[in-house]
């Protein structure tokens, strides 16, 4: 069979749009993420959404759908005064807070939601996450922070006069109680050299002496690219980092004892 350009043009358009319509009828045509964070799979909070999986593509409305916090509270916490708070996209925070001495972004929303709702959150992954003063005020007013979280917000809040003192701004609880500390990462590394955090890679585990076989046993798969963050791997494989981390940490502790 020979076809000419007009037939080819018609076939291309029909097949393309026909295919899209057919897939749409079958429910396969989705152009949006579900905007549902992964859920804790184990422990006291099993079945509840994990704030660590809130993504930059979410709006305050999406966050409110998944967690017990309203868009109005989120808007107040992050100083969003214009427009519909439910439609506010998290990735805009970085633009709004572009002049902030320390970064406020999606990580800040994750932290705020975890603290506000009392859900678990790995503070080791939040060393460089900060909250605006208004967010901290809301958390303090709510009064459900334990001692560790209270200490964390005290050292991770951007206060109005902070800009001038940014270089000395304490970044971790350890740094806050150690005035002579030079820099966040350095301090943390010295205090806790073999602790799995959000920035720990599989290569780190291997270099600490954890056998590859043990890692593979715990993740239930072949070792991925060693340069990959364990946290990213957990997110990609829908594993709970909060569950995987202590299991891997136990292996680290074994070899570092």
């Amino acid at each position: 069979m020979t076809i000419n350009s007009k037939t080819l043009a018609a076939l291309l358009v029909i097949i393309l749009f026909g295919g899209i319509m057919a897939s749409s009828t079958l429910g396969w045509w989705t152009t949006e993420s579900t905007k549902e964070p992964v859920k804790f799979s184990e422990g006291e909070y099993a079945g509840q959404a994990n704030p660590a999986d809130i993504r930059g593509s979410y709006t305050f409305g999406d966050v409110a759908n998944a967690f017990d916090v309203t868009p109005a509270v989120l808007a107040q916490a992050f100083g969003i005064t214009e427009g519909d708070p439910a439609a506010f996209s998290l990735k805009e925070l970085e633009t709004i807070y572009a002049d902030s001495p320390l970064e406020i972004g999606t990580g800040s929303v994750r932290l705020f939601v975890a603290f506000y709702t009392g859900l678990p959150y790995d503070l080791a992954t939040a060393e460089e996450t900060y909250l605006p003063q208004a967010a901290t005020d809301i958390l303090l007013e709510k009064g459900n922070l334990d001692a560790e979280r209270l200490a964390f917000v005290e050292t991770h809040t951007i206060t109005p006069g902070m800009e001038a003192s940014t270089p000395e701004a304490p970044s971790t609880p350890e740094a806050a109680t150690t005035p002579a500390a030079e820099s966040t990462e350095h301090t943390t590394a010295t205090v806790e050299p073999y602790v799995i955090k959000g920035k720990t890679t599989f290569a780190d585990l291997l270099s600490w002496g954890v056998p590859q076989a043990e890692i593979e046993k715990l993740i239930g798969a072949a070792l991925p690219d060693p340069t990959m963050l364990i946290k990213d791997y957990a997110t990609a494989k829908s594993l709970d980092f909060e569950v995987l981390k202590p299991a891997l940490q136990a292996e680290v502790d074994k070899v570092k004892k």
Binding site: G19, W28, S33, R55, S57, A236
Partner: peptide, 23 residues
Amino acid sequence: ASGVLVKKVHDASLVLMGIGIFL
């Protein structure tokens, strides 16, 4: 390998890939 899509990729991309292969 794991049944999940890379972040930012949606099911529509897989549909378009299928149509692209058919074409």
